[in-house]
Amino acid sequence: MAVPADLDRTMTMSGAMVEVIATEMRADEEMFYMGEDVADCDGIFDSTEGLREEFGRDRIMDVPISETAYIGAAVSAAQEGMRPIAELMFVDFFGVSMDQIYNQMAKNTYMSGASVSVPMVLTAAVGGTYNDAAQHSQALYGTFAHLPGMKVVVPSTAYDAKGLMHNAIRDDDPVVYLFHKRLMGIGWLPAPDGPKTGVPEESYTIPFGSADVKREGADVTVVTLGLHVHRALEAAEDGVDVEVIDLRSLVPFDEETVLESVRKTGKLVVVDEDYRSFGVTGEVISRIVENGLGDLDSVERVAVPDVPIPYSRPMENEIVPDSDDIIDSIHNTNS
C-alpha cells in the first residue's frame, strides 16, 4: 500500500477531502464550492464540514435546486479562469443536469479546438448498501467514464482521497470526483475500518492513472474501486494469495499495473458496484484481453446484475456484490 505505515494522524475520508478543499481555498481566492445544502448543513455527506464557518456563504454557496443552472454556471466560471467545485448531491441526479456535464463541461475544450479550459471539479456521492433504493444508490462509474472529456476519480481511503482531491483541484480539465457514501465516515452511515487511514498533514498529490496495489499476492488479481476495494481485501483473507488493485481513477486508466499483475497471477477478477453490462468490468477485461491475452488463464467479473437497485435490505444485499461473492469468483478462477 502507498500509505506510509508510521502515520499517527488518522482521518475519515470526508475529513481528508475537506482538509484539501480548505487548504486549496486558502491559497486561491478564485476557488469556490457550490451545491445543495453545502453551507449551513455542511454537506449531507459531510463533504463540506466546517467550510462555511471559515469561508462564508459567498465561497461555500448553497444553490437553488437547479443542477443544470449551477453546474452550467460552474462550467463558465471555470472557463473564465475561476476554480469552482460543484457538488451533485447524489450521482443519481445526473439525469437532470447531464447536458451541462457531458455536452458542455466535457466537450468545450475539444469543440473549441482547445481554446478554452474547464478547470472544475464535479463531486458526487455514489453507492448503495443502506437501502436508499433505485434512485439514490447507484455507482454509475461507467456512465461518466464512457463519455470523453472528463477525468473520473474514485477514492477508497482517506489517504487516497486527499492526494486525489489535491490533484483534481489543480487539474486544468474537468474532473468528476465520485465519493462513496459508505466510505465517508458519516455518523449515521458507519464506514468499514478500511477507509479511515493515516493522512500526512502536508499537501501531496496522487497522479490520476496510477492504480494502487492495496494488497500484494501471487495467485489471483482482483481489480476494483471504491467500496469494493475493502470488500475485496476482506475476501482476500480467505486463504488464496490474492492481489488487490484499486484503480483510483477510471479516466485515465492504469492499464499497465493491471497487466503486470495478470502477468504474475494469470487470473483476473474484476469487481464493480456498477451495473454488469457495458460497464467497468467489461472495459477492464477488454483492455487486458486486447493487450495481455496470452497471460490470461481465467477471468471472472462480479457486478450488480442488470436491474435497478432494489429497496428491501435482503434484496439489495443480494445484488450488491459482497465479500462472499468475490470469494466465490476467486475460487472459480481456480476451478
Binding site: T68, A69, G72, A73, S76, A77, Q79, E80, Q100, Q104
Partner: peptide, 12 residues
Amino acid sequence: EGCPPAVGAALT
C-alpha cells in the same frame, strides 16, 4: 444550455 454558462460568467 447556454443560459447556465452565461449565469456563470455573470457570477464570476
